[in-house]
Amino acid sequence: MIDNIVIELFLLSIGASFVQRTTGFGFGIFIMTMLPAIMPSYGESTTLSGILAMTTSLIVVVQKHKYITWSRLLPILTTFVVVSIGAIFLLKRMEYGILNVLLGITLIITSIYFAFLSKRIKVRTTMPVQVTAGGISGLMGGFFGMQGPPAVLYFVSSEPDKDHYLAMTQTYFLVGNLIMTLTRAYNGFFTMTVATGYVYGIAGVVVGNVIGSWVFRHITGSLLKYIIYAYIGISGVTFLLK
């Protein structure tokens, strides 16, 4: 049984890291479709997802740090940090069944949005938009460990090219996941099981990042993205039916 969990964590980490490296987001969305089923609690699942995603982002930030523009990053990041901390404290008081339903609905809406609506909706890079995107991202990150979609929508509109986009999103996720991990640890979600899972998953993160880096340089990912969106939507339906 333990061997099966090790293999599952390794493969999930490869897939999640690959998605994050090729699209700039999606680590939490991908891995949280299955991680709650193999971890002892939902809080531990989001904690493990967060520290693995943080490692993925760190690799990219080291590579792309010269493209970071803090003036465009700080308002949305600050809002995210405040809201996500509050959501994590609420998480301790919520029932797993309710979280399953909320996660399923979130996954379905996310897949529909990115598959059909993301190219049609243009977002202005104003302060109210930054605060709104950071707030929604904070709720999604604190509850589900998947803060990407609202932030991605903002950074796609605000950044001039893919290198700036990748640097800004990964810095956002790196800092955000660091803060959330500290908050989750304070709330008792950082357990020995999480630490062990990180050891098993980190090799998958490295493999997925290497493959994703190659794809990012050589292949247009439109078809890949739609496959991922379909997978996310199906996973959301599965959570609703549990």
Rank of each mutant, 00 (worst) to 15 (best):
P40F: 10
I29W: 10
V19Y: 00
I29Q: 05
T46Y: 01
L12H: 13
T33N: 14
A37H: 03
P36T: 07
T46H: 14
S45W: 00
T46D: 04
G26C: 07
S45K: 02
P40M: 07
P36S: 07
I31M: 05
G28I: 04
S17C: 12
L11W: 13
I7V: 15
A16C: 06
F10M: 03
Y42K: 08
G28S: 05
I31W: 03
E44S: 09
S41D: 06
I38P: 00
F18C: 13
L9V: 12
A37L: 15
S45T: 09
V19Q: 04
Y42T: 04
M32P: 00
V6F: 14
F10C: 04
M39Q: 01
E44W: 04
I14K: 02
Q20H: 08
I38F: 11
A16D: 01
M32L: 10
P40Q: 05
A16Q: 03
P36L: 00
L35P: 00
L35T: 08
S45C: 07
I29N: 02
E8M: 12
F27Q: 06
S17W: 08
Y42E: 05
T33F: 11
V19E: 00
V6A: 15
L11G: 14
E44M: 08
T22P: 00
L35C: 02
I7N: 02
A37E: 09
T23Q: 09
M39H: 02
I7D: 01
A16V: 05
M34I: 13
E8Y: 13
Y42A: 12
L9S: 03
F18Q: 03
